[in-house]
């Protein structure tokens, strides 16, 4: 069995989740704790990939980054970077596509922190950075873990976007979901079966993990 589509999928999902973590935490903070103009707009923009067909995102991605476009030409000539049909492009696309899956759980976690708790720390003389580091982050670990795992899993299950902006290049953009599609097309049912089963198991384990995160604190109450 050829493991390279899985290695690629994992690499893509891991990098996506890590980059999203670095973007997601400050973004969730700005959405939860700071008042600014246009916040609703940004919030809607972040949530867009959840309702938009991946083909719409793919279409604009190709439009903006194709070598014929000015941005594409610029990136290519100054940074030797090509974003269509390449791994880096797939990474950028996945980051945009999975953004809500990282931001929303973290934002929820931030917003569920009791106001009194943050105010108490404040009147005890602690600055915002210290409160963020020592109180907000540690008490949002579940939300952050959920965001990490969800965006990882969501990237792992990506198909339409990869097909459009990545094509099907071995070791570059042929991720597991694409490999399954191709195996079915070529009637290599055994290989498709193996790939599909592995993806199914991973997704299941991921969801079990998320649900067990949520339920630890709830004890069954007799009623």
């Amino acid at each position: 069995m050829d493991w390279s589509p899985f290695l690629l999928s994992f690499k893509l999902a891991l990098l996506t989740a890590l980059v999203l973590l670095l973007i997601g935490i400050p973004l969730a903070y700005a959405l939860s704790f700071v008042n600014w103009r246009g916040k609703r707009l940004v919030q809607a923009l972040i949530a867009l990939p959840m309702v938009l067909p991946p083909t719409v995102l793919g279409f604009y991605f190709l439009l903006v980054f194709s070598p014929q476009s000015s941005i594409g030409t610029f990136l290519n000539s100054f940074f030797d970077l090509q974003l269509v049909f390449s791994f880096s492009g797939l990474l950028l696309g996945s980051i945009i596509y999975s953004l809500p899956f990282m931001v929303q759980p973290i934002q929820n976690a931030f917003e569920q922190l009791p106001n009194d708790m943050l105010q108490f720390a404040r009147v005890l003389g602690k600055g915002k950075w210290a409160i963020f580091k020592k109180i907000i982050l540690p008490n949002s670990v579940k939300g952050i873990a959920t965001g990490l795992v969800l965006s990882f899993a969501h990237t792992l299950g990506e198909f339409g976007l990869v097909l459009m902006i990545g094509g099907n290049i071995p070791n570059e953009t042929r991720v597991a979901s694409i490999a399954i599609y191709e195996s079915v097309e070529l009637m290599q049912m055994e290989q498709a079966n193996q790939y599909a089963l592995i993806l199914l198991l991973i997704s299941f384990v991921v969801l079990v993990f998320i649900y067990s995160l949520g339920n630890n604190s709830k004890r069954l109450v007799r009623w």
């Binding site: 190709l62 070598p67 014929q68 594409g72 090509q82 269509v84 049909f85």
Partner: peptide, 8 residues
């Protein structure tokens, strides 16, 4: 069309 869009 992928080639025209820059596929390597």
């Amino acid at each position: 069309s992928q080639i025209r869009q820059g596929a390597p």
